[in-house]
Design a binder for these strands. Structure first.
Lengths: 333, 333
DNA sequence: ATGGTCATGGAAAACGATTTCCAGATGGTA
DNA sequence: TACCATCTGGAAATCGTTTTCCATGACCAT
């Protein structure tokens, strides 16, 4: 293994000089730089990041916490986009990413989690899809031991930021659009998780709409489950004009239930996942740019690590109508 | 930051002794162990893995290369299972995993890739879904600079192993089952990629079946694309009794095309992805346990890193029939 | 008593970088 | 000429471990 020492010898300079050249320090003459760079090239030298991390005490390692909670293809698509957005941007900002799934944290105490993170020299965290009642994560954030960016959970303090879209407005918008298009006079709303941050915001959105429009709203908790959405639809949809769902997966469950019941009700979802193209009928939904969200989260984390203050970043969303044809054409091969 | 030095002082022993206790070396008395462990607990000491890696020259860092090639939800599901299988098992075997997407490697030379991996102190690689014509990966394997495990690509040498299921037999089996169930007398086969390892094996399987059964077989390349499968089906399905596809995604494209044409042909797929439940009709397919495959790949890599010889690991598959109801119930919430 | 084994624990040298501090050279100014 | 500031580059300490080698003492057999 060729080390900085070999480069120094080859270039006829001191180790520290090589280090300075490598890290673009000032106070190095062009001539010396040239000599060093040549030696680096000749020896095909690659700096050892482990040694650099130890020496500089800056590991540049961050962890990506993903919630695989309810395993379904729909969630996979979202998580994959989160991941690719995160990792791609992280490489550009010279951060190493360790991926951690919530399942790996099950039955672990805060202390154990912290030990693991510290043993891995992790200094920053990006947490996707945390729920309000997650005690461990909550404590982790409160402890302020790490720089943290939460996605879809509004937790801002000195050492943590959060990134999300305006869930309340998005739910309001997509539901209103669906309502107007179909001249509906009542809404069945299939909500998400009781303790989810996003679920709460979306619920507020639909409540505001019902209030403004002065129309009846029936809310039922569907836990983001396709099956529960199906069952709730079978039970309640007949009496309402439109079915608004807190997620696409639930919208699909609702739509298929309606088809089985052989009645028509407009349904709208939330997320913009590919599976919507396979539901059998077109539906309105809110498209979130998960890659962009992840990318912003990484940038925010980089900012925090560089000493920035915690803050809230709010991103755009888009109302779309999903059809099989579009999904078919969108897949790039 | 409390270090091993502090622990040594607290316990009243030498640094090396602490290290020995921590790493379960022999030749340490129970009494000393107890003292050290107590000090560790009191100080809440967490070993610094970066320093350990530098010192021992064993980083324990491996990279996971994922092929996001054709972006579709179907592939996301598979990749996600690969990932979770890999990462979970890796933690248990104390390996750190860096995830790399093929998109990050685009337009990079072998040299650049090697530099990146070396700078990250990566010693082992797990490569999912490599194609025969990937020059860079091929050279990477030939160079034998890293211990490598390929999944679905049979590349075995002294420093690399491969893990996969018997694709040839699986394709043969699922097609035969579908053929027999429907008393078919001819087959339309929609193949995968021209240069894919798995595509080649699956093609061999269907060819063997056609030969054994002495029935006509029409093969067309569908590139694993749902859209291409759709188009090929529209064009060729009328003249054949059953449609066998090299992937579930293609099977879905084929099935929807048949429904649009309003003719019936049995279709079978390959992979066992969730999306199969949304195709509209039940289909036979081959279920691969991707989590298990990934887990085996990690174990194989661990073996290679520990000095083992390269070898080929072949895992089981299962023939299944996918229905919406099953998918609905399978999602755990 | 002497010598040899064995178990145990410590001293110190790596590992490969970063970073601080200092020395010498250079050049401009009084 | 003397002094000072500025610019360069080097020496050495440091980061927190692992690992090798050696010293010590206990125990046993001769």
């Amino acid at each position: 293994m060729v080390s900085i020492k070999d480069v120094a010898k080859q270039a006829g300079v001191a180790i520290s000089t090589v280090s300075k050249v490598l890290n673009n320090y000032p106070n190095v003459s062009e001539e010396t730089k040239k000599k060093v760079n040549q030696a680096v090239a000749e020896l095909n030298f690659v700096p050892n990041s482990v040694a650099a991390a130890l020496s500089s005490k800056q590991s540049g390692r961050v962890a990506l916490l993903l919630n695989l909670g309810n395993v379904s293809q729909a969630v996979d698509e979202i998580n994959m986009q989160y991941m690719s957005g995160t990792i791609s941007r992280a490489v550009e900002l010279s951060l190493d990413v360790i991926t951690i799934f919530d399942s790996m944290l099950k039955n672990k105490s805060l202390d154990e989690v912290v030990r693991y993170l510290r043993s891995q020299s992790i200094t920053g965290l990006i947490i996707f899809g945390m729920s309000k009642d997650d005690r461990v994560l909550q404590k982790l954030i409160d402890a302020q031991l790490f720089k943290i960016v939460t996605v879809d959970a509004p937790l801002v303090n000195a050492s943590s930021s959060s990134v999300w879209i305006n869930q309340e407005a998005a739910q309001y918008d997509v539901a209103k659009k669906t309502l107007k298009e179909n001249k509906g006079k009542s809404i069945l709303y299939l909500a998400g998780k009781k303790n989810g941050y996003v679920s709460g915001e979306r619920l507020k959105g639909i409540q505001r709409l019902a209030e403004e429009e002065k129309i009846p709203l029936l809310v039922r908790n569907g836990e983001f489950s396709e099956l529960q959405a199906r069952n709730l639809t079978l039970r309640y949809a007949k009496k309402k004009d439109i079915v608004v769902c807190a997620s696409d997966l639930m919208a699909i469950g609702a739509m298929r239930a309606l088809m089985d019941m052989d009645i028509f009700r407009p349904v709208c979802g939330f997320d913009g996942i590919t599976l919507m193209g396979y539901a059998g009928k077109q539906m309105n939904t809110v498209r979130q740019d998960f890659v962009r969200i992840a990318s912003e989260a990484v940038e925010e984390l980089r900012r925090l690590l560089d000493g920035g203050e915690g803050r809230q970043v709010v991103l755009d969303y888009e109302l779309v109508r999903m059809r099989y044809e579009d999904v078919l054409m969108a897949a790039r091969i």
